[in-house]
């Protein structure tokens, strides 16, 4: 079942074409690995899905309806959450506080100044949310996340995304700067989330990690989609070849023939 389709999405910044005519469909429960060299357009694409950028042209169709994803609050409202590589959590806050940052459970209505935080409920909800995903981190209730390991922080950040994102989760380099064991835990979590029906798009430079969880690979090159393959029907050499341009996608070849 198709969850989201991108139809000929282009994005330019001034004269620079960051994305040109990118189209693909995301199926429910897909784990898509988005790869490409620096400047290939991966992060622009992710930001369009996250609602951080508005496409210059093209259409985003979510569950059969054309949607505008920007600003990010819009994407979030539609069930799309993003976990950025850094800058996604407040170090001095506990995991529970981070879980609810910007969406605090509170008593009363009106301006934020007059709404009292329901600390206990937030804490319990965050803890049960993590338990449900079988994430076992000591000190979720009291420990500031800056005192957690990088892996624990990433687990919390992804769990927060999964908690709020009912449809899609965008992960920007979820295993960057993590050790072997920690990466494994994060990848396990990603697999579990997809099994619950969440669609996941992850940007990564680590092809091994990509292979261990993704069922599809999308390769970006120079702002275009160079390849879009089920990961079962391709291999690492192929993907690297598409990334470096040694091998060219149909789209690229077709364009070169016409120009």
């Amino acid at each position: 079942m198709t969850l989201l389709s991108l139809n000929q999405i282009s994005k330019s910044f001034g004269g620079i074409h960051a994305l040109q005519d990118v189209s693909f469909d995301l199926n429910k429960g897909d784990i898509v690995g988005l790869v490409g060299d620096n400047g290939a357009g991966k992060s622009t694409l992710i930001k369009i899905l996250a609602g951080a950028h508005d496409p210059s042209s093209g259409q985003v169709i979510l569950e059969g309806q054309a949607q505008t994803l920007s600003p990010p609050a819009n994407a979030q409202g539609l069930g799309i959450e993003t976990v950025y590589q850094d800058l996604s959590m407040i170090g001095a806050f506990t995991a529970a506080e981070n879980f609810f940052l910007g969406r605090e459970l509170a008593l009363g209505r009106g301006p934020a100044l007059f709404r009292l935080i329901r600390r206990k409920t937030m804490l319990d909800t965050a803890v049960s949310g993590l338990e449900e995903l079988h994430i076992d981190i000591p000190g979720v209730r009291s420990k500031p996340v800056e005192r957690m390991s990088g892996g624990q922080r990433q687990l919390v950040a992804i769990a927060r995304g999964a908690f709020w994102g009912s449809k899609m989760l965008l992960l920007d380099e979820p295993t960057a700067a993590l050790g072997v064991r920690e990466s494994k835990e994060v990848l396990n979590l990603i697999t579990r989330l997809s099994a619950r029906g969440l669609t996941i798009v992850m940007v990564t430079h680590n092809l091994e990690h990509l292979w261990s969880v993704c069922n599809r690979v999308v390769v970006m090159r120079r702002g275009r989609k160079a390849a879009d393959m089920p990961s079962a029907s391709t291999n690492m050499e192929d993907v690297v070849a598409y990334i470096t341009g040694a091998k060219e996608g149909l789209q690229g070849r077709a364009l070169e023939l016409t120009s």
């Binding site: 407040i90 940052l101 509170a106 935080i117």
Partner: peptide
């Protein structure tokens, strides 16, 4: 104890993350 205070403290740590 208020949502506003929580936001003010979060911004003090990282405005961009907030």
């Amino acid at each position: 104890r208020t949502v506003q205070g929580q936001h003010i403290r979060a911004i003090g740590v990282s405005a961009e993350s907030s």
